[in-house]
Amino acid sequence: MKKNDVPQDDGGLEKDNIKELCYAVDEKGEYTTIKSTGWDPKTIALDNALQEINERINNAKERVLNGETSPIEYYMECHKMDIGILASYVGKFQWQVKNHFKVKKFNKLSEKTLAKYASVFDISIDQLKDINYGN
């Protein structure tokens, strides 16, 4: 890539005033570093990934409202986690976390376990039981 070809697309980074470093060659063919504001192909990829996450969140929310899953799954999606990540944050096995997605099990959870989940999600236990506090 030539120095002048380093893309300066609107990467959504400007508002945070962040530029990233790219490697490119100058007129003499020598390598140098150039700051870039972004490149469309990866901005689109990132946007799509975020949209995907939002779909997952909305889907989880709907299933909580339908009584098909517990708010834990909803908050997990809000925090861009998967079961493996959440399990390691609360110090449980994945099958235990999956179990806690079941509404019946969730309603029987001890205060202690609820507090663990709540602290991982940075909310109170009351908020954990109510999905209106996610993003």
């Binding site: 490697y23 990866k42 689109i44």
Partner: peptide, 16 residues
Amino acid sequence: LGQIVRMQEEIGTGGG
């Protein structure tokens, strides 16, 4: 496909 491109070009690779 988007994930592959992100791994390739996301902040940190210096491009390509």
